[in-house]
Amino acid sequence: MDSLKEDLKKHIIEQLNLEDLTVSDIDDDALLFSADGIGLDSIDALELIVLMEKYYGIQVTNPDEGKVAFLSINTMADYIEKKRA
């Protein structure tokens, strides 16, 4: 699970062009879409949908599902685990 979270952070940094951030800058439970987290927005949500398909083979077709799944690194990792199970 921890390596999944590490990988996820690496992919997010690459996919969202956040080169100035390192894996250690992103907390597992930080709210990604909050200004206190890393302040992602609806455009970044599009990138996360691309990321889910590209690296994990998961198609997020329901936007509401994405909203819940993309809250934090923890929720994204849970979501991936569940989809894989």
Binding site: L18, D20, L21, A35, G37, I38, G39, L40
Partner: peptide, 8 residues
């Protein structure tokens, strides 16, 4: 201002 990291 975390948004800084998202900017080009």
């Amino acid at each position: 201002y975390p948004k800084f990291y998202k900017m080009d």
